[in-house]
């Protein structure tokens, strides 16, 4: 069939297809004035979402659809209190998984809260200080260098990773996705999983409350010798192991059961650390 067509036609078709591909992959950028204390809402099921600190005071949103079957709507309120970015399929279009992807890159001014809803899109947030509410079904959630923020993360099977976070509050609920926290501290750090494993590495500084609870996931906590914690670990039917030097507590709210629970303090015990599993293994180790 192709042999019967003139080469110029084939060349033109190739160029048109290439142009369409480039068009679909073309990046659009929008700039928004958003008030300090305002909120940015992002809805993007597939593709990727990246949030980082903006160099100026404007919110900068770059979006790259993977096909002409999807588009990105953006809107802002006149007072600049709320900006909404929503990726969606065009009417009458039924994009496949790859065609539905939209990559969104956001430069965020300081003091702006962000809410992100994604299905399979990985979410990456780094070097920001506003409050964060992140929700992803299966896409990896990665946070780095976030300070003094309320951080709420929800995931179904999404791996969740938080690194270098100080101050604020952290609340993570993950069903089967693993949760990894490294150098995360705050007034309240809470992790709840059903089967997802939980890994915590850090000194639990700041005199906060750290609560990690799981059904049948494993909990691994690695503490430096300098950690000042008041630690309890309990498993209903699973096992607990401790390799961290703790001073046994003379009084606990439960009867210690060897292999199933332990409690103790190190240094002045300034932070409270509570580890609970139903049947998962809990292990505390010296870092």
């Amino acid at each position: 069939m192709l042999r019967k067509l003139p080469s110029s036609v084939i060349l033109s078709a190739t160029l048109m297809l290439g142009a369409a591909h480039l068009c679909a992959q073309s990046t659009k950028q929008g700039k928004f004035n958003i008030a300090r204390g305002g909120i940015l809402n992002v809805f993007d099921n597939a593709g990727s979402i990246t949030v980082h600190a903006a160099t100026g005071q404007q919110l900068i949103v770059s979006s790259t659809p993977h096909s002409p079957k999807v588009e990105v709507d953006s809107s802002s309120t006149p007072d600049g209190r709320r900006v909404e970015i929503r990726a969606h399929a065009l009417p009458q279009q039924k994009p496949n998984n790859d065609e539905a992807k939209v990559d969104i890159d956001i430069g965020l001014p300081p003091g702006v809260a962000v809410t992100i809803n994604a299905a399979t899109a990985p979410i990456t947030v780094e070097n920001v200080s506003g409050d964060l509410t992140l929700s992803s079904d299966t896409g990896q959630v990665t946070l780095r260098n976030v300070t003094n923020s309320h951080v709420l993360v929800k995931g179904i099977a999404a791996p969740i990773s938080l690194t270098n976070m100080t101050g604020g509050f952290v609340d993570i609920t993950s069903n089967s996705g693993a949760v990894q926290l490294a150098n995360v501290s705050g007034n309240k750090v809470s992790v709840n999983t059903a089967s997802g494993n939980i890994s915590f590495q850090g000194d639990c500084s700041g005199g906060g409350n750290y609560v990690m609870i799981t059904h049948n996931g494993a909990i691994d906590v690695f503490l430096p010798q300098t950690a000042s914690v008041d630690l309890t670990a309990r498993s209903i039917t699973g096992s607990v192991e401790n390799d961290f030097p703790l001073q046994a507590k003379t009084h606990t709210s439960f009867v210690p059961d060897a292999g199933r629970s332990f409690a103790g303090t190190s240094n002045s015990g300034s932070s409270s650390v509570e580890l609970q599993s139903f049947s998962g293994r809990i292990r505390v180790k010296k870092q």
Binding site: A119, I156, N175
Partner: peptide, 14 residues
Amino acid sequence: QPEVRQAYEDGLKE
């Protein structure tokens, strides 16, 4: 969103 159906089904079972 058929691609995440399994994740929800497994999650509800969990």
